[in-house]
Amino acid sequence: MTDKITKTEDEWRSQLSAEEYSVCRQNGTERAFSGRYWDSKIKGMYHCIGCGEALFDSETKYDSGSGWPSFYQPVTNQCVEETRDTSHGMVRVEVHCAKCESHLGHVFEDGPQPTGLRYCINSLSLNLKEKE
């Protein structure tokens, strides 16, 4: 991974739509079953909407039934970072882009093998680049 990206809030607001900004910069969450990728079967690489960093391969995407795109592992262990999230009266693990710190979603320990993890990610934080 390359150096971290740092931008002012005004720069982020000018780059992202209002909905993308709410999710990526304010830790928002899109409604279940509303995002453009929750049921996508298109093959390709999912990149961070904030900085373009490759985050998840469609080969690791699966239908978790949650209503959000779910993956059992990121492209590399270095492309995402995790932090403890105690908002909304719950204890969860937040996932954000290691390069630009955009909020992506959360990771849970109820996913399929080989990792047993479910990266539950907001579509608004992703940009799918289809395989040719």
Rank of each mutant, 00 (worst) to 15 (best):
I42Q: 15
K43E: 15
G44R: 05
G44K: 12
M45R: 15
Y46A: 03
Y46V: 03
H47D: 08
H47A: 06
I49P: 01
C51A: 11
G52F: 03
G52E: 02
L55I: 05
D57C: 07
D57L: 12
S58H: 03
E59T: 15
E59D: 13
T60K: 08
T60Q: 05
D63Y: 01
G67F: 12
S70H: 12
S70I: 09
Q73S: 01
Q73I: 05
P74A: 09
P74S: 08
V75S: 01
N77E: 12
N77W: 00
Q78D: 11
Q78F: 01
V80W: 00
V80P: 00
E81P: 00
E81Y: 03
E82A: 07
T86Q: 13
S87Y: 00
S87F: 06
M90C: 07
R92I: 01
R92W: 06
V93F: 08
V93G: 05
E94D: 08
E94C: 11
E94L: 05
H96G: 11
H96Q: 10
C97P: 04
C97S: 05
A98Q: 12
E101Y: 13
E101M: 10
S102F: 02
L104F: 13
L104V: 14
L104N: 03
L104D: 10
G105I: 07
H106F: 13
V107Q: 13
V107A: 11
E109N: 14
E109L: 13
D110W: 04
G111N: 10
P112Q: 12
Q113K: 06
Q113G: 10
P114H: 10
